[in-house]
Design a protein around this nucleic acid. Structure first.
Lengths: 352, 352
DNA sequence: TTGAAAGCGCTAACAT
DNA sequence: ATGTTAGCGCTTTCAA
């Protein structure tokens, strides 16, 4: 027994609406797409039936015939860490505003060697563009480039090297680190250590470079023992700072690769009765919403991760609508400037 | 001019594969769906062509004909706050494991009165179930219930009252708060204050109730001045604690509604030279990954938000596959127990 | 202003 | 073991 035409059990289709209105499905389609060539009376009757039936056109069928899905594919990693959710916030908001839906995939780790399945799954759903929001680390970006089946939808890469041969949006990590270190120098620090992120991450590398460059510019080229490795987590930051106290006991300033690791420095310092900022000034990176409330409040580098997401969506949609490109334009590379936020953890004997 | 059959410009379809193999599309379909009734040689040839063409079946077309999308709709809110991303992490992982895709919508605020457009958009994409991952506050859950067009896909609600008439998965906030307060009493506190979240949030209400109940059970029924209102943010926690110091100067223990607000208590205490835990014991709620590194490390209530996401997906898929239900089973209501994590902020004169 | 026919890419049902 | 036909829900093209 067919239940077609039974709007009680099944979701109504365009046919149900047409039958109830006594017109063809084309007419319904015209009303749905706000075409002008429908008589006002017909239009009104159709709209009424649509409303009464609670009819909702199938985005699937529409995508299939139009070859447009109005859907973006988002690839992320590390949801359990801070940061990505802010970017996602910007992405979701902008996508919604532009009438796009979001298909989201989370990678099991940051540096996945085989992303084929993820990309293919997104492509199977006809996403019009893909935003690769996992930061560049190891070969992950290049893997994506080489593994993406052609023809491949436009892609935007977030938080990595501003390569000129594809679309990227990045934060200027070098500049952020330089600002942080420069600030410590300005505060009178002469022995500035760095707790870096994993050195296969582009962001960690850039931050380390920025620190290095600022010290060199100040004629204080750093030695290896001034830099300790973390993995972004607070516990790794704790270990890194302990090793720094061993390798570089004269340290009077620390630039940590992120706020979580900086927090551990504050924690260990409190334990060891090292006075902050008097004996040790500390600067982080990220400006988490809690960092103004660390004890002492944390000087840090603010990066607008939300805007990163907003811009990514804008860029992606722009690429979708762009006439076929031959040779990417330079404007495909966007770099966002970070900002120094000065708080108590770095202010020697002064007040804010 | 048609470019059909030109696998260079257009994505290859099942027809392209069929033509190149010299068989019907049906045979290709059989291979794709791993049906047994294909000769080994044919299968092999088909697979080879598929590979060579980089052919990827259209999930859209498949969803349309099968009336199954293998897609879940996720509704979230407040990505910029901590917590939801962990749940999303659990959701994404479990969905991936079960072969489901995720269509995600973020609400502009927690308590949105008109969710129709969001639900309709998800339904237009034929999602098989919807996970409403925004915590219950105000009338948001009831609004969803009443506004959802019928027939409506199965829905799972996260972080709210365990209503028995639809599927919910919640943390036992009352128990968490009770544990926290009980612990403060055990530590010898007699003047235990509470910094609550907004009182139109179910979670805030439950936590307040748990605190209240624990004090009553200890024959110390709290007065109004012992409770201050926050909005989950650190800055609101700061204001709340200042007002508490006014209204309830004898306070010797604080149970804060979340870790961010607890952090502010530590911050203000440090400023005012209030010794923690000697003069004031503090307990938070959430167990953020940073809270072991606050100064002092924060005693808190751990809730497994990641598992919440995992269970939500399992439940949603279960409901999809469930034969038509008449009267929801009681097992639709799942409550997860939280756990007390004791750290320095509440340990009077003892060590861990 | 409206309708009929064709087809998007795929699969279910029935043939052979 | 394979092919044919029909159709998912919609829009495009063409005709009336």
């Amino acid at each position: 027994m067919s239940t077609r035409g039974n709007p009680i059990n099944n979701k109504p289709t365009i046919k149900d609406v047409a039958r109830l209105c006594g017109v063809s499905t084309q007419t319904i389609s015209r009303v749905l797409n706000k075409r002008p060539d429908v008589s006002p009376e017909t239009r009104e009757r159709v709209l009424e039936v649509i409303n009464q039936l609670g009819y909702q056109p199938s985005a699937l069928a529409r995508s299939l015939i139009q070859q447009r899905s109005y859907t973006l594919g988002i690839i992320i990693a590390g949801l359990k860490y801070a940061g990505i959710s802010l970017t996602l916030n910007g992405i979701a908001e902008q996508a919604d505003q532009e009438g796009y839906s979001l298909l989201i995939k989370e990678l099991p780790s940051f540096d996945v060697s085989d992303v084929q399945p993820v990309i293919r799954s997104l492509m199977a759903h006809q996403v019009e563009a893909i935003i690769y929001a996992a930061p560049e680390c190891g070969n992950n970006w290049r893997n994506v480039q080489s593994q993406c089946p052609r023809p491949c939808p436009p892609m935007v890469f977030l938080k990595g090297n501003p390569y000129s041969d594809f679309s990227t949006i990045s934060i200027d990590n070098f500049m952020g680190a330089y600002l942080a270190t420069r600030h410590l120098l300005d505060q009178g620090c002469h022995h500035i250590a760095h707790i870096s992120g994993p050195m296969d991450w582009w962001e960690a590398i850039e931050r380390e470079k920025g620190w290095h460059a600022a010290l060199e510019d100040a004629k204080l080229p750093p030695e290896d023992r001034q830099c300790a490795l973390g993995n972004w987590s607070s516990s790794s930051g704790e270990r890194a700072f302990y090793s720094l106290l061993e390798s570089y006991p004269e340290v009077d300033g620390v630039f940590a690769g992120n706020d979580q690791m900086a927090l551990s420095v504050l924690y260990v310092a409190a334990k060891k009765k090292i006075k902050i900022p008097e004996q040790l000034a500390v600067v982080g990176f990220d400006d988490l919403s809690e960092s103004p409330y660390y004890s002492p409040s944390l000087t840090t580098i603010r990066q607008d991760l939300r805007m990163l997401g907003t811009m990514a969506v804008k860029k992606a949609i722009e690429m979708v609508n762009e006439p076929v490109v031959t040779g990417d334009s330079l404007s495909d590379t966007i770099v966002i400037k970070p900002q120094l936020i000065v708080r108590e953890s770095s202010l020697f004997g002064r007040t804010l």
